[in-house]
């Protein structure tokens, strides 16, 4: 699958700020980060799976890997186009899960701008 030009650029800019990796192996998470962009998950869920008004939050604390695979294969929701196995392999889904699992959980109480 060809990498879209936006992906290359976005990866370059993210690469310098890859967040701490937890749970899954670093290699998988890194590949998952790239796949998250290649397969366009970033568009609705944000580059870090943080969620937006067009796609719910996936990370931190993603659902279990098999549940995630099941969801994206069968999602019939309004905004989430289902990804068949032909489009995204199970191995790719596992890597994507590793990327999502690697996102740190930040406490807003430790972020001065979010205190209020």
């Amino acid at each position: 699958m060809n990498l879209p030009t936006i992906s290359a650029a976005a990866i370059a800019s993210i690469a310098c700020t890859v967040l701490g990796v937890g749970g899954a192996s670093a290699a998988d998470a890194k590949k998952g980060q790239q796949l998250f962009i290649t397969y366009g998950c970033y568009a609705c869920h944000g580059y870090n799976g943080q969620g937006a008004n067009v796609g719910v939050k996936l990370a931190p604390d993603p659902m279990a890997a098999d549940a995630l695979a099941n969801y994206i294969r069968n999602s019939a929701s309004a905004m989430m186009p289902p990804y068949s196995e032909k489009l995204v392999s199970n191995a790719d889904v596992a890597d994507i899960h590793a990327w999502l699992a690697s996102q740190p959980k930040l406490d807003p109480k430790n972020i001065p701008l979010l205190k209020e």
Binding site: Q50, G51, K57, P60, L106, D107, E116
Partner: peptide, 12 residues
Amino acid sequence: RAEAAHAWDASP
């Protein structure tokens, strides 16, 4: 506020 904290240091 909790959701705003997700990916706080991310780029983009």
